[in-house]
Every structure is written in C-alpha cells, then in structure tokens.
Design a protein around this nucleic acid. Structure first.
Length: 384
DNA sequence: TCTGGGGTCCTAGGACCC
DNA sequence: TCTGGGGTCCTAGGACCC
C-alpha cells in the first residue's frame, strides 16, 4: 500500500491532499481537541488548525510521510526533530492503529476474494501467488495486478504498488520500481538490466550492517555481488548468509507464499517521556511494568494464545539493550503470573543506568486449547 | 536533532540427556 | 585418567522487517 497510514488519514482529512503530512509523534490531546470541536465534520477543519511538525517537542519517529513530505527528504523511521528541520511546515497527525487495521483488513479481504493464496506481511504489505488464479498469467500478470488495484481503490480509496515476478525476492524489489500506484513486471531474463544495477541495500534481508560490510569489499550493487564467487561469499559472510547472498544476487528464491502462520511471541513496550531511574523512579516504573504485563495478558487472551517464556527488555539511556527471559512449566496468559516471572527477570539485569524503554514479552506460544491440554499432561507427569 | 513499537529468525554457548 | 557424538532445550544478543 502506498504511504499507507498517511493515505488512510487523507481519507478523513481530504483537505490535506497534496500537502506535506507526517504520521507520528503523539499529541493525542490536540487532535482530540480538533475532533471534539468539529465533531463528525472532520473534512471541514481548516488546514490552519492542524498541528505542525515544527511545534512538536518530544521523542519519537515518523512512521509515514506523504509523497509531498518526502520531497523534503522526510522519511519513515526518521527522528521527529530531524524531520522538523527538513520540513517544519509539515502537518503532523498522531498514529491511529485501530483505523489502519480496519483498512488493512478491508484491502486484504478484497485480495483474498480474487487471489486466495496470500501471505500476510504486516499491516500494509502482502505476497500473492498468481499461479493458479484464472487470468493470472495474462500480459505477464499485468491484467490481474490492474484488477487488484482497481478493486482496492474503488472499495477503499487507497492506492497500492504491485511488483510481479517469478519469486518473492524479485517481486518485492519490483514493487518499489513504480510508486505510487504502479505496476512493474520483472521476468527472469530481466535480472541483469533491472536488478543488478540496484544497490545491495534494496535486497529484502540486507540491512545497514550487512550493507556496510559489503561496501568494505567494494560491493555496492547487486551485480557486483553476483560477480563474487559463491565460495568467496561463504568464506567472508558465513556458510548460511554467504550462500544466501549468492543465491539472492542471482535472483534465486524458492520460498513459497505462506498463507497460514501462528504467532511466536507477543509483546508490549514503551519509551518513557524522560529517562527513568530504577531507584528514584521506582514507583512510576512499577506502574508502567504492571500495565505492560496486563496489556500483554489482554492481547494473549483476546487472540486466544498462552505462552511459557516470559521476558523483559530494557533500553538504557545510552541506547544499549538488555533482555532477560525465563521459561516456566505451564503455559500462561495470566497478568499476575506474567508480572511475577517478569519481575524475577528484572532482578537479573543491571539497573544502574537510566532507562529509556521497558518491554514485556511472552513467547513459546500455543493456541489456548492446545496449551491447556499440554498443561494437563504436564500436571499428570508431575504426579510421578 | 537522537533514534517507536511489534514482530521473526539466526547464532552461539551451556546444560543436560542418551 | 581421560573423555565421543548426537540431540534438545534454554538464554542473550543482534540483524532485519513493516
């Protein structure tokens, strides 16, 4: 989906169309004030009444920027302060996940009704297997891609960009070629002309660290990566990652489109308005900690899962991260149990430095019904 | 001007078992 | 007195993605 969060916001605030808008930060109260003042007439709110990025003071990053804002160099994951320097006049809206989830469900249901082999890749992205869809091969997939775009836009008002290719790896790169509202078809034979000139960073799975290491060897483009012998890549990047880099550079990817999957973990975390100290801010930390445990428990219960590995995550003021976890015998989705085990984890971690973030995680998940039956057999075993 | 929140997967060492 | 090979599970950290 194109600039998904921002595009969803423009549906209720059409008066902001064409303007630089960023989603992020959280000044819920001001936005609520606007909503209270204008009630249902959100489209009537004058542009001048929206909060501006330059007036924002606080922590946080940008989650989405409209294409008008991207012209100024503002982009996802950028700190708010930096973005404010680049584009102070941008209008800033708080995130509204409930709304984005609603539209996410809507566009995915449309895709499923047309092409049922769909892999969920988060709130705004999917892989679709065209192979068995009637008409899926016409014009190299372009006809089906156009149908998906049109159906989604008619129903939601949102645009998306589609890449069509022989595998997920190339399709993902192709989807970036023609944004927004574009379609790109990449055939096997297009590897050299369309993929090899790209930066290695464009590969889904090559992040900043791997990219920097590749650059040390003067490998900037995927073509340069493809030119390296497989053995050399394995020697320098490890057996698994080296072989994967080689396959990837040659456009080889056999991963199937996975239509069903179970969650592995659920977590809640929060960054404080100011860095907190374990001793001086004990009471406040304790409140937040308990709240996080209750939220994770509620998430587990709502979605019907229980887990037996409970963990915490800290981010210190120097941005270093520490995690601790503990696996218990019985699966749980209970806030008090999670709080107790997470509390034990907290005792095992250094608490001298100030804390920026605190998180609670439950992993080793099973659907609640299975967790219960496993629990029973566990109890029986303990009788002996 | 510091850098969110929710995830997955991988690696590596150690405990423990057969 | 020295010492195997294979396997699973747990834990901590880190890279990466949306």
């Amino acid at each position: 989906m194109d600039a998904f969060y921002a595009s969803v916001e423009l549906l209720r605030y059409p008066q902001l169309k064409g303007l630089p808008v960023i989603i992020g930060g959280a000044r819920r109260s001001e936005d609520d004030a606007l909503v209270v003042k204008y009630g249902e007439r959100l489209a009537d709110i004058p542009v001048a009444e929206f909060p501006l990025l330059k007036d924002y003071v606080g922590r946080g990053v940008i989650t989405t920027a409209t294409y008008a804002a991207r012209q100024f160099g503002v982009g996802s994951a950028m700190g708010m302060m930096k973005a404010a320097r680049l584009c102070p006049q941008a209008i800033m809206l708080p995130v509204d996940f409930a709304q984005y989830r609603k539209f996410s469900r809507q566009f995915k249901d449309i895709i499923l009704s047309i092409a049922p082999r769909m892999e969920d890749r988060g709130v705004d992205e999917v892989y679709i297997d065209f192979t068995e869809v009637p008409g899926g091969q016409r014009e190299g997939g372009r006809v089906l891609a156009r149908l998906l775009q049109k159906t989604i836009q008619d129903a939601t008002g949102l645009t998306c960009s589609i890449g069509v290719a022989p595998n997920k790896l190339i399709a993902k790169m192709a989807s970036e070629f023609n944004k927004p509202n574009g379609i790109s078809i990449v055939h096997e034979g297009d590897l050299e002309t369309m993929i090899w000139p790209l930066s290695c960073r464009k590969i889904n799975g090559v992040g900043p660290k791997a990219d920097a290491r590749l650059k040390q060897h003067e490998i900037e483009t995927i073509g340069q990566l493809a030119a390296k012998p497989r053995d050399w890549l394995i020697a320098n990047f490890g057996k698994s990652y080296g072989a994967w880099l080689h396959d990837t550079a040659w456009g080889r990817d056999e991963r199937p489109v996975v239509t069903e999957s179970e969650p592995v973990s659920m977590s809640r975390e929060t960054t404080f308005d100011r860095d907190l100290h374990a001793v001086q801010d004990k009471a406040e930390l304790g409140r937040v900690f308990t709240e996080l445990c209750m939220q994770v428990a509620a998430d587990l219960q709502r979605k019907g899962y229980a887990g037996r590995t409970i963990g915490i995550k800290l981010r210190y003021d120097d941005f270093k991260i520490a995690t601790r976890d503990q696996t218990i015998d019985l699966y749980t989705q209970d806030a008090a149990t999670i709080r107790r085990i997470a509390g034990q984890c907290l005792k095992r971690v250094p608490l001298q430095k100030r804390l920026r973030l605190l998180g609670v995680r439950v992993g080793n998940l099973l659907p609640q019904e299975q967790a219960q039956s496993t629990e029973k057999s566990g109890e029986n075993a303990s009788l002996f």
